[in-house]
């Protein structure tokens, strides 16, 4: 099995986990109530951290996702080109 395929699976699982973390930090605060009510930037932690992760951190993650998956597409295309040359 080639490395591009393994990379594709790895990226999908890792980015799915990262995206879910960014959008569902409420779970963390309800599972560990001790994390609540610390003031950060003037807001309670359980409010501002999920909001910041759900927008700004998410943008960073999505930016990396776009960059890496674009590079992976190029890698698969190169493999395909190599395959068709071998066939010829």
């Amino acid at each position: 099995m080639n490395s591009a395929y393994k990379k594709e699976i790895r990226y999908t699982l890792i980015f799915s986990a990262l995206l879910l973390i960014c959008g569902h930090l409420g779970l963390l605060f309800v599972a560990f109530p001790g994390l609540q009510n610390h003031m950060i930037f003037g807001f309670p932690s359980q409010y501002i951290i999920p909001i910041t992760f759900g927008w700004l951190v998410l943008m960073v993650v999505v930016g990396f996702q776009a960059k890496l998956t674009n590079a992976l597409d190029d890698e698969i295309e190169e493999l395909n080109a190599g395959l068709s040359e071998n066939v010829e």
């Binding site: 799915s16 995206l19 959008g23 409010y47 999920p50 759900g54 927008w55 999505v62």
Partner: peptide
């Protein structure tokens, strides 16, 4: 607010999956 935050995941997850 928590219910709404996660809606921003939709398009990135759709694109990925």
């Amino acid at each position: 607010v928590y219910m709404w935050i996660q809606f921003a995941l939709s398009i990135p997850l759709i694109t990925l999956w």
